[in-house]
């Protein structure tokens, strides 16, 4: 998978950085892989670092929202971290507020919030 560098496990959280050239096919595969990993391990949270993403369109937004839904069913929270300002403005303009997901400025912030839960 070219679009995802790695899935790392840190303090019961899965850290994923998504690269800008991720394709629709790859992101669906990622959703699948993450769902399996959450179910197999004792995972409290999934942290998606999207700071490399120049765009998040309705499809990618939807997949992320679905992933949050899936993790919740498996008792884990999904965080999106590092969203660029331009991406945030564009998503809002598209009407995609993504209320399903939790957000944080950075990986560190997300991990800190997860510890508090």
């Amino acid at each position: 998978m070219a679009g995802v560098t790695s899935i790392n496990l840190v303090e019961h959280a899965l850290l994923v950085s998504i690269q800008d050239d991720i394709t629709d096919t790859e992101i669906l595969e990622l959703q699948d892989r993450l769902s399996n990993k959450i179910a197999q391990n004792r995972i409290d949270g999934v942290i998606l670092d999207i700071s490399a993403l120049e765009i998040v369109d309705t499809f990618v937004g939807r997949v992320i929202a679905q992933l949050a839904g899936i993790s919740k069913l498996l008792a884990a929270e999904t965080y999106v971290v590092g969203m660029r300002p331009t991406v945030a403005v564009t998503l809002v303009e598209l009407g995609m507020y993504l209320p399903e997901i939790r957000t944080a400025l950075s990986l560190t912030h997300a991990l800190a919030q997860l510890r508090e839960i």
Partner: peptide, 21 residues
Amino acid sequence: SALSVTRFATAVSEIVRNAIN
């Protein structure tokens, strides 16, 4: 500008996906 690039590239992404899918 960065915002204009993101907005337009997002629009492009939407229409090419329609063509492909």
